[in-house]
């Protein structure tokens, strides 16, 4: 060390010797780390390319409007798209009031006590429960015990329970963003707590709540395991007309086609993935736009 130090010209502050080596390693590390960060993105792009490459030729109006079939080139997504739309619409209808109601109660009405802490802890834990557990819950309670069968209603109830925790937690976050001065202002004018929530807290939190809901629905749109457990892995060759109908969804159809050994069905799966990903990316984009648009200054 001493020799090295003596060798360095004292007139400059340029790094030399061990310091220079350490600096070089550190500078080099930037690119290695950046590379690691981009791996995920690169994999995503590569897979996206592979999928489009595989499935693009199968995409057509017929593919979207045909019922499933034993023959890969005649099979289509008609019943699974309809089933997805039915089950997601019903999930939205069920989840919105319960999720927003829960979040409002917890943030604006609940006494700050042990019970509230328990509800909060419970939500955090439910958010981490695997979807297949929600699936067997749905199977045991909705399909068998309540005897709803493998119906759209049973599917929507299962998905509602599944997305509820994450929706509530994100909605609470949105409600907390509403400044307390707005709440005080409303109460000081003689409004009741509910009037305050109805006219000021909810409108203020709505963009955040909508973002949370859209993201949750996009997760439900891709859910497969829970719906297979309640019996959505089935051949549907009719248009759903009621919530009591059996149903299947696009992700379940993708699963169905993926596990077939024939190459032609794999192509169908790739084409269906394109359809599903476009829908999910659109939802995510909508959520991002809402979030940016209403971002508090």
């Amino acid at each position: 060390m001493a020799v090295e130090r003596a060798a360095a010209p004292l007139a400059t502050l340029a790094a030399s010797g061990a310091v220079a080596r350490r600096q070089a390693v550190s500078r080099g590390s930037r690119y290695v780390l950046l590379g690691a960060t981009l791996i995920g993105v690169a994999v995503l792009l590569f897979l996206g390319y592979e999928t489009v490459d595989q499935g693009w030729s199968r995409l057509s109006i017929d593919f979207l409007t045909n019922y499933p079939s034993r023959f890969a080139d005649r099979a289509g997504l008609r019943s699974s798209i309809l089933g997805t739309v039915w089950v997601l619409s019903l999930t939205i209808v069920l989840a919105i009031p319960v999720a927003i109601g829960t979040a409002i109660w917890m943030e604006e009405f609940a006494p700050r006590n042990k019970l509230l802490a328990l509800v909060q802890l419970n939500l955090a834990n439910l958010a981490g429960v695997p979807s297949i557990i929600y699936g067997i819950l749905g199977l045991a309670v909705f399909v068998r015990f309540l005897d709803l069968g493998p119906s759209i209603l049973a599917g929507a109830l299962t998905l509602t329970l599944m997305i509820l925790p994450m929706t509530v937690i994100a909605s609470q976050e949105a409600i907390r963003q509403v400044p307390s001065s707005i709440r005080e202002g409303a109460l000081a004018l003689g409004s009741t707590r509910w009037q305050m929530v109805r006219y000021h807290v909810l409108p203020g939190a709505m963009p955040g709540i909508m973002t949370a809901l859209i993201l949750a629905i996009s997760r439900a749109a891709g859910e497969t395991a829970a719906l297979i457990m309640i019996g959505a892995f089935t051949f549907i060759a009719f248009d759903n007309t009621s919530v009591q109908d059996d149903f299947t969804t696009v992700p379940v159809q993708i699963y169905n086609w993926t596990i077939r050994p024939q190459e032609a069905f794999r192509q169908n799966a790739a084409a269906a993935i394109i359809v599903l990903m476009v829908a999910i990316l659109t939802m995510n984009l909508a959520a991002a736009i809402i979030r940016e648009r209403f971002r508090r200054p």
Binding site: S181, I182, G185, A188, L189, G190, T192, H200
Partner: peptide
Amino acid sequence: AVEVRRRIGMVFQKPNPFP
């Protein structure tokens, strides 16, 4: 308290108009 507040109004430190 709600009845009280509609008779006894309040103005706060920081202006807090509703958005």
